[in-house]
Design a protein around this nucleic acid. Structure first.
Lengths: 221, 221
DNA sequence: AATTGCATTAACAATTTGATAATACCTTTA
DNA sequence: TAAAGGTATTATCAAATTGTTAATGCAATT
């Protein structure tokens, strides 16, 4: 469950944001100015911070700059809230290390879609590589290493291994595999999967892809 | 977390600066004269040194001169504190290698904005060029050096290399590359990327751009 | 006006990949 | 044990993808 810290000097805005985010299942804390925001951030350790740019005392941009200097907030998501149509603020914010920005007046729908999108992006990135024993699959690098040896797989081979390894021990039906990798509208022959499986087995000379006769394949070390 | 050393002979000033900087999240040490400042600098290794110009014993300018001769302080940020309205000190300070100066009386806000700005500048510069083995890419100068040889890349070539090198090992999909470098609304032919890649490979005769067939390209040493 | 350099495209070569068919193999079952 | 149903293997060919070179058009520079 994700934590969100909101900093704004207008109580109305805090209320609107808090209500909508909590309805979506987020845990929300609020701060009414920049200094409080920094303090709360340190204890609350949110996954996302929404910062109003214009606040008395410290501006959101300043708060962002300060937080970004702390190692604990290097990767924390930050969204700026700005009333300015001025692009300068926007650019400066992103330069300083904001992940997105929102223009006032706030549309709850837009807010939620941005927030959700950011979290999706992050979890996706985190989910991006698989580590099983001596085998490492990195979806970002399209690389497979086995005992520190780089193994070169073709695209389909990589996708296939990647799919099977994404849920070790789960048996993937042939149909499931076809849908995931070839898509629903492509039709390929029966032996196609076998051939790819064979190539993978050949390249990794590790017996990790098991055949479940009459059913499908599964990955197991 | 950044470290700041303050040297001034007036305790009041030390207190004010320390309080404000610590509130901002900096780690602060103080010194009440030039000699102590030099000693503490050597052990504390601050990222920033704030030096009062007028101190008994050694002036801030002298301290700065001494420190700048030591390799450990070649790139340390230095700010002068001066009560003089006289421009001469200011100029001399910058000549000797100060990064900024502050006039007394000190306004905490001004101080903090200057300090933050300096650190921003530095981190930005660090972010701005890429250093990988014998290869250096400087986004500010649009220059690429390989083994200290300046390599002349055209704009698109530079942007492409720069993009790929910004995340070594990450595979950039052709689409991703098009969006990043050409933008979403420009349509270019299929071979455009390849041709640029080829030119880069030719100019750097280093085999660092790898093709991942059916996927994209990645930078790897 | 001529030159230079760059971005793009076109055309073709080279390479890699994917799919299939044919055949061999294995396991289960009648 | 033979037949049936499924999978493995291999070679082969088609398709997709990328590499390479030269040519074109354009803009800045001389």
């Amino acid at each position: 469950m994700k934590k969100v810290l909101i900093a704004d000097d207008e109580q109305d805005i805090l209320d609107i944001l808090q209500f909508n985010l909590e309805a979506e299942g987020y845990i929300v804390e609020t701060a009414s100015n920049g200094v409080v925001a920094i303090e709360k951030a340190k204890t609350f350790l949110p996954d996302l911070i929404i910062l109003d740019v214009m606040m008395p005392g410290k501006t959101g941009i300043e708060v962002c700059g300060i937080l970004r200097m702390l190692p604990a907030f290097k990767t924390t998501l930050i969204i700026f809230l700005t009333a300015m149509s001025d692009d300068t603020a926007e650019v400066r914010g992103l330069e300083i290390g904001a992940d997105d920005y929102l223009k006032k007046p706030i549309r709850p729908k837009v807010l939620l879609s941005k927030v959700n999108a950011l979290f999706r992006r992050v979890t996706k990135e985190m989910d991006n590589n698989i580590n099983l024993g001596d085998l490492t699959i990195n979806r970002e690098n399209f690389s497979v290493r086995f005992k520190n040896e780089e193994i070169n797989l073709a695209r389909k081979e990589f996708e296939l291994l990647s799919l099977l390894a994404s849920k070790p021990s789960k048996v993937f039906l042939r149909n499931e595999i076809l849908n995931q990798i070839w898509g629903t509208d492509v039709i390929v022959g029966d032996r196609t999967i076998d051939v790819h499986i064979r190539k993978i087995r050949q390249k990794l000379d590790l017996d990790c892809i098991k055949t479940v006769k009459g059913v499908g394949y599964k990955f197991e070390l």
